[in-house]
Amino acid sequence: MNYILIYLIGFIATTVGTLAGGGGFISFPSMLLLGVPIHSAIGANKVSNTVSSFTSFWHLYRKGEVDWKESIWIMPVSVMGGVAGGMTATFMSASMLTVVASIFLVFGYIISFLGKGNFTNQKEKLPLNKYSFSGLFGIGMFDGMFGPGQGTLLFNLFGYLNLSYIKAVALVRLATVSSCMGAAVTYIASDKIIWSVTLCLMLGSVTGAQLGVRIAEKLKPQYVKPILRIMTLLLLIQLWINQFNL
């Protein structure tokens, strides 16, 4: 097993994922190409995402970019959505999951054009209303069912809710911690984890998360929505290529 490559996969995927989501579409297929068993690859991603997402959230929290009181409710909502998604996925075929994932991503793409802001509002707090609650629950459900693309969908949701970009980065990381933690525990308990692979991926992911969050602090907000639209389209193309073996 090439552990240096696994480290680099974690580094690149998490750097991209921190900025705009979609890192799972880099790390997961790359690990499968290296011969990592599918359940071990999923488990490694969940463990590394839990740790790396928390480190980037904690960095922004300590800098005062996000208020704990306004965001704490994200965690139980994301966990409930993840559990509901995991249970739903057990009754769905792989092709049906791809269709559902495509619907979610198309909806996220449309939402990116409907948002009231452009990630420039520095004062707006995350509201607890029907849009934020249902959006977070639905995306948590998507993460439980499918996974890759969850971060991009969250960015589109927070753009619609008119949050600043750096606050959106922090909240995406917090929601990712919530949705991945339960899955990580499940894979550890079922003895599906290859720890040498997981630790290499986690080290790369933590490094990538720290680089990504520092790039995010300097990224001009007006560039974010075009990046998200491109990322969403790339995710859809990747899904369709996998589905139709193009």
Rank of each mutant, 00 (worst) to 15 (best):
S53T: 09
L97I: 12
I237E: 06
L32V: 08
V47W: 01
S190H: 08
V213K: 07
I9S: 04
L128T: 12
G204D: 12
T232K: 04
E217Q: 09
V79Y: 05
Y3N: 07
N49R: 00
F104I: 10
L8Y: 01
L32P: 10
D143S: 13
K225N: 15
L136D: 06
S78R: 03
F146S: 02
S30G: 06
S52D: 09
A170C: 09
G17L: 04
E124R: 14
L33H: 02
M181L: 15
T55A: 04
R173W: 02
K69S: 09
N45E: 11
F137C: 10
K192D: 14
Y3W: 10
Y61H: 10
G82R: 03
W240L: 15
L5I: 13
L233W: 01
Y165M: 04
V106R: 00
P221G: 07
L246N: 09
E65V: 12
L161H: 07
W240G: 14
E70Q: 13
W73I: 12
P221A: 03
I6F: 03
M75Y: 12
G10N: 04
F104M: 12
L136H: 09
T207I: 10
K218H: 10
L246H: 09
F25A: 13
K130Q: 12
A94L: 08
L174R: 04
Y109N: 09
M92Y: 04
A184L: 08
Q243V: 11
L201M: 14
I4D: 01
E70Y: 08
N121W: 05
L233R: 01
N242S: 15
G24I: 13
A216V: 07
L60P: 13
G82V: 04
